[in-house]
Simulated assay, not measured.
Amino acid sequence: MSQNPGTEVLRYTAFSADPAGGNPAGVVLDASGLDDAAMLAVAAELGYSETAFVTGRTGPGDGGRPGEAGRTGPPAYTVRYFSPRAEVPFCGHATVATAVALAERDGPGDLLFLTAAGTVPVTVTRQGAGLRATLTSVEPRVVDITADDLAEALGALGWPAADLDPELPPRIAFAGARHLVLAAGSRERLADLDYDFARLEALMRRLDLTTVHLVWRASSRVFHVRDPFPVGGVVEDPATGAAAAAFGAYARTLGLVPDTAVLTLHQGEDMGRPGTLTVELRSGDTRVRVGGTGTRITG
């Protein structure tokens, strides 16, 4: 089935109130008439790192709007995510973008996104004149990476092992998608990103990685991050909510932060698209919350 000519593709940026900042995503609020090939074609034509497709709506009050009298729970939306090359199980910035788009249409409130990675609650609130969305990740996990795979990752990046921060050891973290977390020892190391696209892509496909999450610790709660994304056909992702959630799990698992903490991640500065991601950890809840503002891109 080819793309429906009537399909409305919206453009939003996530993790910034400035349309020129953050990470742009495509949003299709009614993708019920699109098959996989059509969704991939839309994502490829748009060219953003991901596009979100709302393929259905279920749950209490189906057909109604958030806040209507008699509702017993938040609306639940089935959401799928496509990069220009393939479907991905979950995407944080496209989740924020989609939630903001739904809130602009229906009003802020609580939502449930039914994704390939699991059920993701999202809350949208007003922040000044704009909207802010906070997602709650699926159950995260953190695992080791082998010495050989780490060496290959560093080789593809062109990073000497001596340039890593020894206090933030490499790990693979998951909170909806798998990300390799590598910590730079200096801001200069993080800023100098010139990697072997094909070599890193091959390793990431073998390890089922969505991005490589490169981190520099500015302080105990503030980090600067970058995310190479060759498996999506994109050199770098400007603001990566799924990786931020995975990093929150990483930081807690390694004891870098208390069980209850709020972390600030700055991303996109080196690309000229600055964005800010807030990562919240709560004691007694292993899931990770990631929040940020979003705004529509017009013109």
Rank of each mutant, 00 (worst) to 15 (best):
Y12F: 15
E201F: 03
P166Q: 14
L154N: 11
G63E: 12
W216T: 05
A218F: 01
G128F: 09
T295Y: 01
V279W: 03
L164K: 08
V120F: 12
R296A: 15
A43N: 05
Y77E: 14
N23W: 09
A161S: 00
V262I: 00
F229H: 14
D196M: 07
A173Y: 09
V96I: 15
M1H: 06
T125H: 11
V9Y: 02
G130Y: 06
A52Y: 02
S219E: 08
G21L: 06
V124A: 10
R282F: 10
P238M: 09
A44I: 06
M204R: 14
G109E: 01
G128E: 05
G275C: 07
F197Q: 00
L265W: 04
G47C: 11
P140D: 12
G92A: 10
A94E: 10
A17H: 08
S83R: 09
R57C: 13
L135V: 00
L40T: 07
A101I: 02
R205M: 07
P258Q: 02
R226C: 07
V288P: 05
R126V: 02
C91I: 04
V28M: 15
A97C: 05
S32Q: 08
P274A: 04
S283I: 01
H266G: 02
P108M: 12
R187L: 15
A117M: 14
E188L: 14
G6M: 02
A31L: 08
G241P: 01
R132E: 14
A175T: 04
F53T: 03
V27H: 04
L180P: 12
V290A: 13
A97S: 07
V54M: 07
G284K: 06
S219H: 09
S219K: 04
A162T: 10
E280N: 06
V262C: 03
V290K: 00
P66M: 09
A177I: 01
R171C: 08
E152I: 06
S16L: 10
